[in-house]
Write a protein that binds this DNA or RNA. Structure first.
Lengths: 235, 235
DNA sequence: TTTCTTATTAACATATTGTTAATATCAAAA
DNA sequence: TTTTGATATTAACAATATGTTAATAAGAAA
């Protein structure tokens, strides 16, 4: 934004005299719901791997909610935009840089933080877990989060995030931010199924998704069944 | 949210000693992009009315941006949620109560307000202009807003709002919040066209929209052509 | 009665999706 | 070596949905 120019002396005076401390103190934070995918072994007997949706959490080591899990995030500081703040806190809390992020929702309940009035601007972030280097944070299976005691209203924020993801998956290319460079259509379908919470029929899924995919020429192997073609996302 | 219970004496002390003024002062505002529809006379010779999309603006009577148009909104006060704050400011700046609203985006650029650091949580609101009683605010034609000098980044906020509206119109029932109780399909189509910025073919539009409509049995008249059926929104 | 205008439906083509069945290709068991 | 069991992939058809043009309807005004 270009710098604001006061129109007259009177306005200059008004702005110089303006007292920013007239309001009771309020803090703004950013918090990120970071999604990724990992293959989980769901059937050890048949050695069956399945894609599962993960959320990156950090353990709090200060009051309040000490030892609870929370979303990575932190206070918005002077001179920082919300996005600046997101970048800085993601780096410091999880080691991550260059994460695809978009704004989710701003949470403004009065008592959501026992320290003081805190309004949190929440983001959804998506990344390829194979590439990302994580520090001091853990990938938690999305299905397990309901069982955890989460800090603040972060459990609620995660719920809203998955709803948003579910809403956007069919009319945007948002999922590809968390797919690895190369993947099979079945793997992609599993990710869709996990996010949507329902099974899809393969032929229809293949047809609609294939405009967005590019054949790598490579195949998977050693799987005890017909190998599958590896694709990449076509921009 | 249920009240937070400290787990131990140590945490109680921590919370009592916590100094909310440690951060440099920051303010949070809410601003609403309020959409409505009015019939504008576009061809006086043929007495032709057309639906146009309007945004409700207020004229600022204080510094900064004195005498510029701005979105109705204001500071979030102690003990108010964002929605509380939105309700209060809409009432006081425009006289409106019970307006359908949903969160749009939170704007956090550092210099967006020359008074102090202000982060604004913007909302989209939609209402039926025939029912709404407005005070101290004016309906501005959406197409004219580009020409106006708007306060703060409010021009930008309106642009984002119309983009969101355009994105949601085809997979939600959001438009009906700004339609009058009874309307013709042509009127509805015009609203769609104005929001999408493109002409639609009537037969296809009729077909897809009619599941959402209920016949009132009434007709329009005196128009110099075949009268049209009046519908209402079917929930 | 004709003309102009917009509303509404019909009819058809085309595109998209849902669904079931057939076929392909691997590893491991028989 | 053949069979079995698994998943991958394509084919084929049905069912819907959408795009498009043309026909018909119903009013006011010429």
């Amino acid at each position: 934004m270009e710098k604001y120019k006061p129109c007259c002396k009177e306005e200059q005076d008004f702005l110089r005299e303006y007292n920013p401390s007239q309001f009771s103190p309020i803090a703004v934070t950013v918090d990120a719901v970071i999604f990724g995918i990992e293959k989980d072994n769901v059937d050890n007997y048949r050695k069956l791997d399945e894609q599962s949706i993960k959320v990156l959490l950090v353990k709090r080591d200060d009051y309040p909610y000490k030892d609870c899990y929370s979303l990575p995030g932190g206070f918005v500081l002077e001179g920082e935009t919300l996005e600046d703040s997101l970048r800085r806190t993601l780096k410091s809390k999880t080691g991550l840089t260059n994460v695809y992020s978009e704004q989710l929702y701003t949470f403004g309940e009065v008592d959501r933080d026992p320290r003081m009035r805190v309004i949190s601007c929440a983001y959804i972030s998506l990344l390829d877990t194979q590439k990302a280097k994580i520090k001091n944070a853990i990938w938690m299976n999305l299905d397990c989060i309901k069982e955890l005691r989460m800090a603040f209203d972060h459990g609620n924020i995660i719920e809203e995030a998955i709803k948003r993801l579910r809403g956007k998956i069919n009319y945007t290319d948002i999922v590809f931010h968390m797919m690895p460079e190369e993947f099979t259509i079945s793997e992609l379908q599993q990710v869709y199924e996990k996010i949507l919470g329902e099974k899809l029929l393969a032929p229809a899924f293949r047809r609609t998704i294939s405009d967005k995919l590019e054949d790598t020429g490579k195949m998977t192997g050693n799987a005890g069944h017909r190998p599958s073609r590896l694709f990449r996302y076509k921009k």
